[in-house]
Design a protein around this nucleic acid. Structure first.
Lengths: 213, 213
DNA sequence: AAGAGTCCGGGACGCTTGACCTGATAACTG
DNA sequence: CAGTTATCAGGTCAAGCGTCCCGGACTCTT
C-alpha cells in the first residue's frame, strides 16, 4: 500500500468507516471491516487510532461538521422570505432522498453516543450545532429585512430542528416519497407564517400567541 | 423458580428484555443478560425462544402495541377541540418526560429492525401504526363535530407523527425540559388552526394551501 | 551510507457472544 | 400412577471481536 502520513491515513480511515457504517450499520462495522474498506491492514488501524472508540469519536465529529455545513448551505437566504424557506427545505429534502444511508447513520451515531459512557456530549453537540445553524440563519434573515417573529428565535430554531429530524426519520422508515410533499408544504407555510415580513399582504394574525407555561 | 406455562414465560422474558434494553441499550443486552434480568437460567431462554431474533421480534411487536395504545389513550377526544389537541400533546409529553428510556428504546429498535435483514417490516409496521392511530383520532374528531380540515387527513396524520418523533428525539438528546414548552405551544396552535371547527371566531385563512409539487 | 523515525503487514492472544447439549429434577395433567 | 411439561446447572462449541506484538520496509536527515 501507498505510504501515507498518519494524519491523512486517519482521515482515510474515518471516511472508510463512514462508508462502511452507512452501508452495513454501526453494529456490524468492525475494526476489520473498516480496515478492509480503507484497503489497509488491521495493524494500520491501531497504528493510527488508539482504540475503536477514538475512531468513532472522529467519525461523529466529522459527520456532524459535514451536516452542519450542509444545513447552512441549504438554508442560505434567497430573494423572498417564502423562497428562502421553501428552497431551504427543498434542498435539505433532496439531500435526504439522495443520501438516505448517510442520514440514517447520523441517527445511529446519535444513539451510539448516548449509550456509550463518556460520549453523550458528542450527541448533544451534534444537535446543539443543528440548533445553532438554524438560529444563525434566522438572525441573518432578521438582519436583512424587517421581520416580525411570532415566536422567540430559540423556539423557532428548535421547532425547525425537531421538524426536520422527525420528517427525515419517518421518511427513512416509511419511504414513499410522494406522500411527504403535502406535509412539507404544510410545514413550509407554517414556518413562513411564523417568520413574516412586516409587509402588506401577509395574513393578519390567525391564532395569537398565547403565553407559554 | 416458580413453574410457569411457556406462553407466560415468554411474556416475562420479553418484558425483562425490554427492561434490560431500556436500561443498558440494545447492543449491550445479551441473552445472558436477559435471562438474568428475568431471574431464570439461560436454558429457559432457549426453551422458550428458538433464537435471540425471535425474542427481539417479540420485543418489537410488544413495545409497538404498547405505544399505539398509549398514543390512542393520550389523544382521546375532550370537550373542545383546542382542549383535545392540548391535552393530547400534554399527556404524550408527560409520558416522554417520565419514561425517557422507553422512548429511547423504541428509536433503537426501529434502527435495529431496519438494519436486520427480514425485520424491516417491523420498523415500518411500527410507524404505520402510529400514523393509523393519528388518522383514527382525526376521523373520530371529524365525526363528532363539524370540522373543516385545511389539509388532507393523511397529511395531518403524517405531520403529527413526524412532529412527535422529532420533538421526542430532540428532547431525549438535549434534555432541558423547560425549553420545549414554547415549541409545544407553537405546534399545538398550529395543529388547532389546521383542524378548526366550522365556528365563528376562528381565524380566516392565513396562507392558502398551495398545490403540491 | 548509516541511523532514526515512521509506516505497514501477518499473526496471535484473550475474551465475549449466541447457540446447543446433557442429564437430572420438579411440577402439573389425565 | 404414568406422561407431559417446565426448570435447572453445567459445560462445549465455533465464530467474531478488539487489541497487541514483532519484524520488515520505507523515508528523511545527517
Amino acid at each position: 500500500m501507498a505510504r501515507m502520513p498518519s494524519a491523512e491515513r486517519r482521515r482515510q480511515l474515518t471516511e472508510a468507516a463512514i462508508r462502511a457504517m452507512a452501508r452495513d450499520g454501526v453494529a456490524k462495522t468492525t475494526t476489520r471491516a473498516i480496515a478492509a474498506e480503507a484497503g489497509v491492514s488491521l495493524s494500520v488501524f491501531h497504528y493510527c487510532f488508539d482504540s475503536k472508540q477514538a475512531l468513532v469519536e472522529s467519525v461523529i465529529t466529522t459527520i456532524t461538521d459535514h451536516y452542519v455545513t450542509l444545513v447552512k448551505e441549504a438554508l442560505r437566504p434567497r430573494a423572498t422570505l417564502e423562497d428562502t424557506v421553501r428552497a431551504g427545505f427543498q434542498a435539505y429534502w433532496d439531500h435526504v432522498r439522495t443520501h438516505p444511508d448517510e442520514h440514517m447513520l447520523t441517527y445511529e451515531l446519535t444513539q451510539y453516543a448516548l449509550r456509550q459512557p463518556g460520549f453523550e456530549h458528542l450527541a448533544r453537540r451534534q444537535h446543539e450545532m443543528y440548533g445553532e445553524a438554524y438560529t444563525h440563519l434566522i438572525e441573518q434573515l432578521r438582519a436583512g429585512r424587517d421581520l416580525r417573529l411570532r415566536v422567540p428565535v430559540t423556539v423557532l430554531a428548535r421547532y425547525l430542528a425537531a421538524m426536520t429530524d422527525g420528517l427525515t426519520l419517518n421518511y427513512l422508515v416509511l419511504g414513499d416519497e410522494a406522500a411527504w410533499t403535502g406535509v412539507l408544504d404544510t410545514v413550509t407555510a407554517h414556518i413562513a407564517s411564523l417568520v413574516m415580513a412586516d409587509g402588506p399582504d401577509a395574513a393578519p394574525g390567525p391564532p395569537p400567541d398565547r403565553a407559554p407555561g
